[in-house]
Design a protein around this nucleic acid. Structure first.
Lengths: 225, 225
DNA sequence: CGGATGATTGAAGGTTTTCAAATAAAGTGG
DNA sequence: CCACTTTATTTGAAAACCTTCAATCATCCG
């Protein structure tokens, strides 16, 4: 399995790669909550999210579900079979989320046929690993306030969002809580606290505006004002 | 960057892959705490841990350091350049840890030359992603007791350890705490508690014996006895 | 408009961290 | 090989933090 999330476009080569792989992909428009791929199916495939947002769940033995990844426009992710645990689902969050699906066999053929392409494809996967490690860093350490601040910062840095004055959250507070491993109420309190301190504004239910980036970074790395 | 950790040997093909890649790799014996690779260097490379253990740190802006991955015999990991954050180090934990280093360019050439090889190599990387997602699941949810129980279970399932009656920990309590995102004291208390309940034995400072696997699994998934 | 979902706030209770101290084991240099 | 230093482990108690439970409010959608 799994996700190549946050594999971000950086180079001219990446643009070429996308042009090439898009030729072998099929475009799909998803409804809200529509499954994009699940762990127990037997097809290996790569995906790229074009617009909207998607999330990856794991279903735990006790029935709870846990978000383990978040995908935004430009992110690659994969449904690959690695043998073991298969209790997960990737689903579209928003109505109208658009993804492109590439058969893994075609991707592999692409890599096998061209050294440059092989390198670029590995780069995509390594960026995904890098993003996951960043996620580990976000959720593993520190107080809830630090996690929330880091989450906002990472979101703001995503290529599909960067430079936008106002961030539109693709997730509910519950989803964010699930993603960060804290309770929804705590997430809410952290947002409120940041707002009260003038670090962020909350113009609408699903929107954040960063007013003081330095203060936000301070919170992210120390939890102290 | 980064890690292809816990990419586990499963198939006959994997054995063939290892034989092939070992031909282009260089073997290295590491001292305790010796750096295997760091984030800011400019060489892309893959690695496989043959014996011993290694860990991956991130150095945070405030100076703290955080373990984001653990490598055991058979695990692949990569030092790849993805552009952004480079504040990490992979280092050997034990004296005499042996790794094999493969230049990324040779790996890519291998993939580009052979479809089967390309597929196997992607499989390795996807397994690494899978393992990272499992790590996210371990650290994100539940009480400290659940995390510790899951950690022990995952360790016990690792191919390099599986079926051994007694698990030898490659990490200190501090490392485990760092890895799980809890304090060392809490890790200690969890171990003590598991011992008192007869779920595990602690024959020596760095050894664990699972006495009641079912009870351990119960703890891992519910935190309840 | 009404129902459902999501967001927010308060208060009580439970966990975990932090601080402090004691003990044990391992490594060092003589 | 021993004394000494350093590192690692363990336990206790208080404080900080987060979760849970409950209730209220807002928003979206039909």
């Amino acid at each position: 399995m799994h996700n190549l999330n946050h594999a971000r476009s950086t180079s001219k080569k990446r643009d070429e790669l996308i042009k090439t792989v898009d030729a072998i992909g099929t475009r799909k428009r998803c409804k809200r909550r529509e499954e994009i791929c699940v762990g127990y199916e037997r097809t290996r495939s790569w995906h790229r999210l074009v617009s909207g947002a998607a999330r990856r769940y794991s279903i735990l033995p006790d029935g709870r579900r846990q978000i383990t990844a978040l995908f935004l426009p430009g992110d690659f992710f994969g449904c690959y079979l690695t043998g073991q645990d298969e209790g997960w689902v990737i689903e579209a969050i928003n109505e109208g989320t658009i993804i492109i699906e590439y058969p893994a066999s075609r991707i592999e053929a692409l890599a096998a046929g061209d050294l440059i392409m092989a390198r670029e494809l590995f780069e995509v996967v390594f960026q995904a690993i890098s993003a996951l490690e960043e996620q580990v860093l976000t959720i593993v350490r520190g107080k809830a306030a630090e996690k929330v601040a880091l989450f906002v910062l990472h979101l703001a840095e995503h290529p599909s969002i960067a430079n936008a004055p106002i961030i539109t959250l693709p997730l509910t507070r519950y989803d964010i809580a699930d993603y960060l491993g804290v309770s929804p109420e705590t997430v809410c309190r952290c947002f409120t606290d940041l707002k009260n301190r003038g670090v962020i504004r909350l113009p609408a239910r699903r929107q954040i505006e960063i007013m003081n980036r330095g203060a936000l970074e301070n919170r992210a790395y120390q939890g102290v004002a």
